[in-house]
């Protein structure tokens, strides 16, 4: 067990996800512990991103519940949800920076919405956050002027603007070159260890799974749920399920 802390802070219980009549996930249950780097793995179309969208409350599940830090977000009212959301940061796959705003404006948006800090202090926090992701000085640049890796990091700075307790990443390494991806790994690890943020990743990037993943679950579309859990090393070395082996050894089914 890589993480010594086993206090569950995110609990997913009997989650069933449906789009119309099509069931994507059936009766999925797992827990995420405080401060760990937890990964949701699986091939394309297995429902990873759908699961993530349920965990951050973008979609309500058909059945089951998602509890974040003691709050059942599937039943919470708008006000409670708003409060929980201020403690959640999400880095979307396509960075989702607002193209019409500079980096500083992007990062200061949640600060201006959720806090009553004066503008000078917000500017200072923004400078600090951009420094955290090695983008110091890029305050007035527009997202379109940056490279893919820089945009990812800027997205991370925005996701962390409020010092969230939970950070969710949707395929953070997609479209990054290996060097930039490795730099992002280092950054994520230092943020996780330095700030103690609980991190949940949705990914299929083997290199980063092994370098960052502490506990993982693997989804598969045939069972519409979890087929394996454990550390990445355990799954690679001890799993007898051919689907898991193929995934970890990058083989065709």
């Amino acid at each position: 067990m890589a993480s010594s802390n086993t206090e569950p802070v995110i609990i997913v219980e009997g989650l069933t996800a449906r789009y119309g009549e099509v069931t994507i996930l059936q009766d999925v249950s797992f827990e995420v512990y405080r401060g760990e780097r937890f990964m949701i793995l699986g091939g394309s179309g297995c429902g990873k991103s759908t699961l993530l969208k349920h965990m951050i409350g973008l979609i309500k599940p058909h059945a089951g519940r998602v509890v974040i830090d003691g709050v059942d977000i599937t039943r919470a009212d708008e006000e409670t949800l708003h409060r929980v959301r201020s403690r959640i940061g999400v880095l979307f796959q396509a960075d989702a920076l607002f193209g019409s705003m500079s980096l500083a404006e992007n990062v200061s948006l949640p600060l201006a919405e959720y806090t009553d800090l004066p503008p000078e202090l917000i500017r200072e926090i923004v400078r600090m956050k951009l420094g955290l992701v090695n983008l110091a000085g890029y305050d007035n640049h527009m997202p379109s002027e940056l490279s893919g890796g820089m945009r990812k990091r800027a997205g991370l700075a925005r996701a962390m603007a409020l010092d969230p307790t939970f950070l969710f990443y949707d395929e953070p390494w997609a479209g990054l070159d290996p060097v930039t991806a490795a730099e992002l790994d280092i950054l994520i690890r230092s943020l996780n260890e330095g700030i103690g943020t609980t991190m949940v990743f949705v990914t299929q990037e083997l290199a980063s799974i092994f370098s960052l993943g502490q506990r993982v679950i693997m989804l598969h579309k045939d069972v519409k749920g979890i087929i394996a859990r454990g550390t990445p090393q355990e799954l690679r070395e001890t799993s007898s399920d051919p689907r898991v082996n193929h995934f970890f050894n990058r083989q065709a089914d």
Partner: peptide
């Protein structure tokens, strides 16, 4: 743990003016 966090913060970045003026 707090030491790790304090080390993460780029002290210079807090003072440095933006590369491009507003």
């Amino acid at each position: 743990k707090d030491h790790g966090l304090l080390c993460l913060i780029d002290r210079e970045a807090l003072q440095r003016p933006p590369l491009r003026p507003e």
